[in-house]
Design a binder for these strands. Structure first.
Lengths: 157, 157
DNA sequence: TATTGTTATACTCTATAACTATA
DNA sequence: TATAGTTATAGAGTATAACAATA
């Protein structure tokens, strides 16, 4: 049993979809969080921040990280502080703007992230193992519509 | 931009799907949380607990609520305490087991929940407005495979 | 002994707002 | 004045573990 029992509307399709979406996300997310904790002694926000940096070898500024991670600036400062203290990322001054920093992975951070990413991918592949290639592509496409609508409500209404 | 930039694998389809699923869920969830806060001065876990009770008029025991909400018992106690203090739910002794309670909505709680549920449904319908009926049915079905696989991994592997 | 529910505690994550230093 | 980032604070949400009462 789970939260999907919640739907009870006269227009129930969208509501039931939302509850199922939430249930699936929570199931996967709980497993990823607990595995990150057990196997790597880290958290999902820390993993996400490092993942952003892994794709930006030259580093990212604090406000760019904030935007991409969809959290406010103060939080990025806190998580970055932790990772700096552990030698996994570093703050690099930005030429021409002495207010700003670029945050980037250290070699040690990159090494550690690659390990985590390998394990993470296996967990995700297993989580979606019930889906065929075509299912995955369909889901990806339909969720894209949802995402686009959020970002440009007028165009897809 | 968002977290989907994170994918970087040799088997990227499942990973990209997961990041998109997470992004969509977060977008909707953030909006629901902030609307619940602004319009009804409440939180998502409180809404979810009341939603469970709305579907179980005779009430639910604490451990059943804990299971359905996928959180540990101590949290259910805390949320229930708040709702009791506001007169929205009540603890009813269970015949034949003096350790247990049934928690159920009060008439006031039911009235207030129905108001919230109406608004909540409108937010969700809007969130998925980019999807047609067929899209919704497809998404629902495919997410069902994911959910079932989590609950019975051997059958769908 | 096992189970139901509570209490106590601690920690992560988050948003907000005031602050500094540069621009 | 505006922007980049930090600090301080408060609160939500969670898990864990010890506990009391009952089974």
């Amino acid at each position: 049993m789970d939260m999907e029992a919640r739907a009870h509307s006269e227009h129930p399709e969208a509501l039931r979809l939302w509850l199922r979406l939430l249930t699936c996300t929570q199931l996967v997310e709980k497993q990823v969080r607990s595995a990150l904790r057990e196997q790597f002694d880290t958290t999902l926000p820390r993993f996400d921040l490092m993942a952003q940096l892994e794709r930006a070898p030259e580093g990212l500024r604090m406000n760019e990280l904030s935007r991409r991670l969809m959290v406010t600036g103060g939080n990025v400062t806190g998580i970055t502080d932790q990772l700096v203290a552990e030698g996994l990322v570093e703050r690099v001054p930005v030429e021409g703007d002495r207010r700003a920093f670029c945050v980037r992975l250290t070699p040690s951070g990159r090494r550690q992230f690659n390990e985590m990413a390998r394990a993470h991918e296996a967990w995700i592949v297993e989580a979606f193992a019930a889906l065929g290639e075509k299912d995955i592509a369909t889901l990806y496409r339909l969720l894209g519509k949802v995402k686009d609508h959020f970002q440009n409500p007028q165009e897809t209404a």
